[in-house]
């Protein structure tokens, strides 16, 4: 049960939930909450914990900023390449997020040691 508290596991669960609500074409409120929740937090949660900032308010801010930045860059790249597909953009973002989560799980101390934020 302890693992459930760890961001990488939560992130993988969130990514999976996103995939499921889209796969089953869940009704709007549920779908919007889960998918937008993932888009606003997922990509950031994949990498910000690696910075070991340890100050929740700062971490939340950076998670949100990184998530919005990655969402924007992925969506914009597809639009500019005239290769737009919301599904593909989401798949790329899920892949990025899961990659970050796996890095966190496999090598929790590889990037930095814990430092005061």
């Amino acid at each position: 049960m302890n693992n459930l508290r760890r961001p990488p596991v939560l992130l993988i669960l969130l990514a999976a939930a996103t995939d499921v609500v889209i796969g089953i074409n869940a009704p709007l409120p549920l779908r919007a909450v889960v998918v937008l929740g993932f888009l606003l937090a997922g990509p950031g949660l994949a990498f910000v914990p690696l910075l070991r900032i340890r100050q929740t308010s700062v971490e939340i801010t950076l998670v949100l900023a990184l998530s919005l930045a990655l969402d924007t860059l992925v969506a914009e790249a597809l639009v500019l390449a005239q290769f737009w597909s919301a599904g593909l953009a989401l798949a790329v973002l899920i892949a990025i997020s899961v990659t970050g989560a796996v890095v966190q799980l496999l090598a929790p101390g590889v990037v930095t040691r814990e430092v005061e934020g």
Binding site: N25, L28, V35, T72, A75, E76, A86
Partner: peptide, 14 residues
């Protein structure tokens, strides 16, 4: 950028 992001939110958010 912002509009691509909003298009993503619109479509995947249902």
């Amino acid at each position: 950028g912002f509009f691509a992001l909003s298009a993503l939110f619109t479509q995947v958010g249902g």
